[in-house]
Computed example of a mutant assay.
Amino acid sequence: MQEAETWRELLATIISDSKEKQRITEALNITPITLTRWINGESAPRPQNLRHLITILPLHREKLVKLLQEEQSVGDLSQIIPEESERDIPAEFYARIFTARASTTENLRFWSTCNLILQQAIGQLDPNRLGICLWVVRCMPQSGPHNKVRSLRESVGLGTPPWVGNLEQQAMFLGAESLAGNVITLCRPGIIQNLDEEHNLMPAQRVENEKSAAIFPILYAGRIAGVFLVSSAQYSYFVSQARTSLVQKYADLLALAFEPEDFYAPEQIALHVMPSHEEQKQYFSQFRQLIADTMITEAHRNRPANNVQADWKVWQRLEEELLQYASHKKTR
């Protein structure tokens, strides 16, 4: 096959695959006719569309950028070609985390540290606002007849459209059926570039709009507290080594949000299968009311509980109910 000599020829080759053509038109929110006009030179993409095109074609990025640089009619490339994601977390941000961690009260330390880190991460991992979802997923405390970690809970989450900004109201349990559970069990990262094609290769309970995902364990001294889960609305978003390296660095930084007792040795973990998100929703529909009721009940027992303590008690109660539901469903 003859090598493309212009970016338009390269684009024509790429969209000869009908699935790829559909993916590009959907990602750019344009019609197939517009794409054809670009290729034929009948019209030129706007700078933001060209920038987006480069971003959604990571496998062709280097060649596409080179051909664009050779075409003088494109204009000022500094406004078009996206910068690579920052390879490192800024040094001053580490100092900010240490200061915040030292000055925040114990009850708020986990949430405030995670939230601060996710806000920084979302700007670096999705600078072009293509759609990303970040979750800190933590191990539930040991429980059950064998005193093991039996599930994970989505704890602190942020997103960019098509996801909402604050994801915490959508938090659910994850278990052995999930990619996060697989990462916890094997204690090694899991990356899926195309959830439509790779969903049978490893466990993955996907959510709406999720096209690719990268999950890294949160570790301390050979023990694990949870995972940093990054989902993208784009396929192949984690092809770039720089991007996956950055996800790894944020997972390492998130370890500072946890206390030493929050980390578990591999032999303390035995994840169970949890019900689907749709099945869990009915259990979480009265979540806020359950917290209020728990605080009232504990106060009547002369064991006052603050909001954080009541939150944990409700999560533990729901975990037990959902584990029983999943067990009964399995035996039907």
Rank of each mutant, 00 (worst) to 15 (best):
I224Y: 08
A204Y: 00
E259N: 08
A213T: 07
D262T: 06
F263N: 00
P266F: 11
N194H: 14
I224N: 08
A257G: 14
Q193M: 14
R243F: 08
R223I: 01
E267D: 14
L256V: 05
F238Y: 07
V230F: 06
Y220K: 06
D262W: 05
L256E: 15
E197R: 14
E261M: 08
P203A: 00
Y237W: 15
V227D: 01
G222S: 09
Q234P: 06
Y250V: 04
L246R: 03
D252K: 11
M202W: 14
V247A: 14
L201M: 10
L201D: 07
P203I: 01
A251I: 01
L195C: 09
I224T: 09
L195Q: 05
A213L: 08
Y250N: 12
I224Q: 06
M202F: 12
F238P: 01
P203M: 04
Y220T: 03
A225H: 00
L229H: 12
K211M: 05
S240H: 09
G226M: 02
Y264K: 06
E261T: 06
M202P: 10
E259L: 15
V247Y: 03
Q268C: 12
Y237R: 02
Q248T: 02
D252F: 02
I218C: 00
K211N: 03
Q268D: 14
I269W: 09
E198M: 09
V230Q: 09
Y237H: 08
A213N: 12
R243V: 06
S245Y: 04
A255W: 09
A242S: 13
S212C: 10
A221C: 07
A233S: 05
G222E: 13
E259V: 11
R243Y: 03
F228E: 02
R243I: 11
T244S: 12
E259I: 08
K211I: 00
S231C: 13
N209P: 07
D196W: 05
Q193D: 06
E208P: 13
Q193N: 08
L229E: 08
P260V: 04
D252H: 15
R206P: 10
N209C: 15
A204W: 02
Y264T: 00
Q248Y: 14
S212T: 04
A221G: 14
A214K: 03
P203Q: 05
E210Y: 06
